[in-house]
Every structure is written in C-alpha cells, then in structure tokens.
Amino acid sequence: MKQSILIVEDDNILQEMYCEKFEMDGFKVEKASTGREGLKTLEGNAPDIIILDILMPDMNGLEMLKEMKKNRELRNIPVILLTNLGESKIDMDSELSFALGIKDYLIKTKHTPDDVVKRVRQVLKLECKS
C-alpha cells in the first residue's frame, strides 16, 4: 500500500517540486498552501506523515501543529518541518518543536529533495518499528 504524505507549503513552485518528487518516489501526495487548508485536508484523511512549512499566510506551520495537538486523531502523525525561515535550526527552539512532536527540522536550501525523501523514509521506518 502506498504511503501517504501531506505537503503544506505556500510557495507554488516548491509545493509542486516536492509533490513531484514524492509522487516519483511512490507516495500518495496531498497538498495544502496554508495551515488552515492543511487542517481541512486532515479531516478524516490522516496521512502517514506531514511535511510542514513554517512561514505561511493565514495560519503558520507552528499554529497548525498546535491545533493538531488538540485533536486526538491528529496528535500522533509524524511531522517534519521543512523551512527556509531566517533562523537556522540552532536558533530555533528545538525543545518546543519536539514537544510538539516534530520528528525533524530540515532547511530547504540545505537539504535537497532527495535528502527530504530519505529523511521521510527514515522517519516512517522508525515509526513502523515503534
């Protein structure tokens, strides 16, 4: 069975790029452009993993995460943050991110689409094991 992924990314080109990459790698891909849209997509349709951008209009990634944590069904979906936010991973407060159940934190310019896919697979493998 195909593994499903939700990509929440506001930049059209990047959204398309990651979608294309994951589809090529055999994922069932859902997409959303804002946090609110992402939450809507999640209703009754929980993916195996979520790739989440942070800086987005309407509702940003972290706000969406907070909302997810309130929902028992969505609480345990693994999330990888994929962002180009002006702060590096070190500056970001990892404690909080991980408290919100973030599995990893990737930088778009640093990690190639390949890297992202690899990381997603790793996380899913670990999830399966656990």
Binding site: I13, M17, K21, N84, K108, T109, T112
Partner: peptide
C-alpha cells in the same frame, strides 16, 4: 527586512537547487 529578504531569496534558490539536483540525479 533581512529576515524577509533572506526568506524571499531562499525560496527561489530552493526551487532552483531542488530541480537541479533532481535533474542531475536523472529523475
């Protein structure tokens, strides 16, 4: 301003870099 600029600069760079690696990886 710098934060915004950096974000705005990085986004197209991400796309450029992403597609390039995918192309070069013979995707």
């Amino acid at each position: 301003f710098m934060s915004m600029v950096s974000h705005e600069l990085r986004t197209p760079l991400t796309a450029m870099k992403g597609y390039l690696t995918m192309t070069l990886n013979s995707d």
